[in-house]
Simulated assay, not measured.
Amino acid sequence: MELGLEVAEGPAPYTVLAVKGEVDVYTAPRLREKLVELVSQGKHQIIVDLEGVDFLDSTGLGVLVGGLKRLRSNDGDLSLVCTQSRILKVFEITGLTKVFSIYDSVDGATAS
């Protein structure tokens, strides 16, 4: 399964990273590279849209947590968009719903 990564400029100062496919041990490094690239370009308010994600494993979670830490160390933040119960369950089980701001839509994330 290919991992799709699309970057779009949201309303300032947000950058939206839409992720599609499976985020696992094989594809997570590409997600990590993209997040590092965005931060190095000065993008410090990133919304990761997980609506197109079919599967997310612990490696993918680790990449998202690492991205969040990197952004917070640059006075930024990483928010998530996710409405799929099977993906949300992963965040609930791991307690990461307390760490990440999770929204129902990109509009909801940019309005916060």
Rank of each mutant, 00 (worst) to 15 (best):
V39H: 10
C82K: 01
R32N: 11
R72P: 00
L71T: 03
G67E: 14
V16T: 02
L31C: 08
L3R: 12
A8G: 08
S79I: 03
P29D: 10
L5S: 09
V19E: 08
V106R: 00
E9R: 14
V39M: 13
G66R: 09
G10N: 04
K69L: 11
D54M: 07
V53R: 02
I93M: 13
H44K: 11
T110G: 00
V106N: 01
S79H: 11
G95E: 01
D57W: 03
F100C: 02
F91C: 05
G4V: 11
V19C: 06
A18S: 15
R86C: 06
P11N: 15
I93G: 10
C82G: 02
K69D: 12
G62I: 02
R86T: 07
D77M: 04
V81T: 00
S105N: 09
Y26Q: 13
E22D: 15
K34I: 07
V7Q: 11
T15L: 03
V65C: 02
S105G: 04
L80F: 04
P29G: 08
A12T: 15
V90C: 07
E51R: 10
D107G: 14
A8M: 15
R86I: 05
R30V: 03
L38D: 12
V16H: 01
F100L: 07
L68P: 05
K69I: 08
A111I: 09
F91G: 00
V16P: 00
M1T: 08
T59H: 09
T15E: 08
G60A: 04
Y103T: 02
G95F: 05
G67F: 08
D104W: 03
H44P: 02
T27K: 12
E2R: 13
R30T: 05
S105W: 03
E92S: 12
I46W: 05
A18P: 01
R72C: 04
L50T: 00
G60F: 04
D75R: 15
T59S: 15
L17I: 01
S58A: 05
N74Y: 09
D54H: 11
K69M: 12
M1P: 10
G66D: 06
K89P: 05
V53T: 03
A109I: 01
V63T: 10
K34F: 03
K43R: 15
D49T: 00
D107R: 15
S101N: 12
G66N: 08
G52W: 09
A18D: 04
H44S: 12
S105R: 04
D24N: 15
L35E: 08
K20W: 09
V23Q: 06
Y103P: 00
I102W: 06
K20D: 08
V36Y: 12
V53C: 05
D77Y: 04
S101M: 08
Y26L: 15
D107P: 06
T97V: 13
N74E: 14
Y26A: 13
E37F: 09
K98S: 14
V7T: 13
E92L: 10
L5F: 09
V7E: 13
V48D: 01
S73H: 13
T27V: 04
P13Y: 07
L78H: 00
I102K: 03
S101H: 13
P29N: 10
S112G: 14
G42Y: 09
L80I: 06
E9N: 14
E92A: 11
K69Q: 13
L35C: 07
A8Q: 14
G108T: 06
P29F: 11
G66W: 07
T94M: 11
D75K: 14
N74L: 14
I47Y: 04
K69Y: 08
S105Q: 09
E33L: 12
G67D: 13
